[in-house]
């Protein structure tokens, strides 16, 4: 037994235990030694990357006493307001009706009507699509507009180079040289999967009234494909098919189509006028009245918005 204990540190199990405990391992040890050793003299090729100016610029300002007090007051007020809101929300949550209770106020005749008559009235097999794009299409128009307004706000705040065209050209060249693209592995794989991702997005949008999915989810998938394309192939290739102009035209056309189509259907519906929009045969791809077309419009808006938001935050332009 004693012999076994003596052998333990040099045995495999002992070494494994030690590795678990303190990471005593040839690679680790050499790493630790190398980390403690002074840095080797940098060769010419190992010039460190230039650090962008905005990262090195630090705030060097001595705070006066007043400022310190104000800062403390700010922190205290922020914590107080935050905990007040948290307490308020928790109290409200405790007062909500139980989840799943059949007597809840939400379980009134409206959802019953949606579930029982939804298929017949809207023609959409996917009841959720029937709800958000037919009964409550006005609400969805608002949601698409929220996305559009969000991009507009980001454009106002972040969009750069509105002035000197020469400066813009130089900025773009600079941007291109710092791009992470031009990686052959990423490019090959992206070329393989981007068409599949786009196809899947189109499928989700076009089948929005037949299966789970719709404009929002499909548009997000397609926007992700665009972002991947930009990452893999760089700015110049993306600019061939997607510029700020494309974004403007697609967004405005899609939102305008949505608003006018729903205006027509609301007008005829409210006045009991005959309308050429019919539910059609449920389950067919061309059915459910306006829903597929509204899905396409929403998908376009979401796709462009996703890409535009990414692009604006990345380099300050679409």
């Amino acid at each position: 037994m004693a012999k076994l204990r003596e052998n333990l540190p040099s045995s495999r199990w002992g070494r494994f235990l030690r590795w678990l405990r303190e990471g005593d391992d040839v690679l680790d040890r050499s790493m630790a030694e190398a980390l403690e050793a002074p840095a080797p003299a940098p060769a010419d090729a190992l010039v460190p990357l230039p650090i962008p100016r905005r990262l090195t610029r630090t705030r060097q300002r001595n705070l006066t006493r007043m400022e310190k007090r104000l800062r403390a007051l700010y922190v205290v007020t922020a914590v107080l307001i935050c905990s007040g809101i948290i307490a308020l929300l928790l109290v409200t949550t405790a007062g909500l009706p139980d989840f799943g209770d059949p007597d809840n106020p939400a379980n009134n005749e409206v959802p019953r009507h949606y579930i029982e008559k939804g298929l017949e009235e809207t023609g959409a097999v996917n009841i959720v699509a029937g709800m958000i794009l037919d009964y409550r299409a006005f609400d969805t128009l608002g949601e698409s507009n929220v996305l559009f307004v969000a991009v507009c706000a980001v454009i106002i705040l972040l969009r750069l180079h509105s002035g000197d065209p020469r400066e813009r050209l130089r900025d773009e060249a600079d941007e291109r040289s710092r791009e992470p693209g031009h990686d052959i592995i990423l490019q090959v794989v992206a070329a393989l999967i981007i068409p599949l991702i786009l196809l899947f997005g189109v499928y989700v949008i076009l089948n929005g009234h037949l299966s789970p999915g719709g404009g929002f989810s499909g548009g997000a998938v397609m926007g992700a494909a665009l972002i991947l394309f930009q990452l893999a192939f760089g700015e110049r290739h993306t600019a061939r098919f997607f510029t700020f102009r494309t974004f403007r035209i697609v967004s405005v056309l899609a939102l305008g189509f949505y608003a006018s189509a729903k205006a027509y259907s609301f007008f005829t519906g409210a006045n009991h006028l005959p309308s050429f929009i019919t539910p059609g045969i449920p389950g067919k791809i061309f059915s459910a009245g306006l829903i597929p077309y509204l899905n396409i419009a929403v998908g376009m808006v979401v796709c462009c918005t996703m890409y535009a938001l990414y692009s604006l935050f990345r380099k300050g332009d679409v």
Binding site: M31, A34, L35, L46, L186
Partner: peptide, 17 residues
């Protein structure tokens, strides 16, 4: 692969690690 590439780019002395 891309993460590794970025890590190599950002590490000043990979031979020390």
């Amino acid at each position: 692969h891309l993460l590794g590439k970025l890590a190599v780019t950002l590490t000043d002395h990979p031979e020390r690690e």
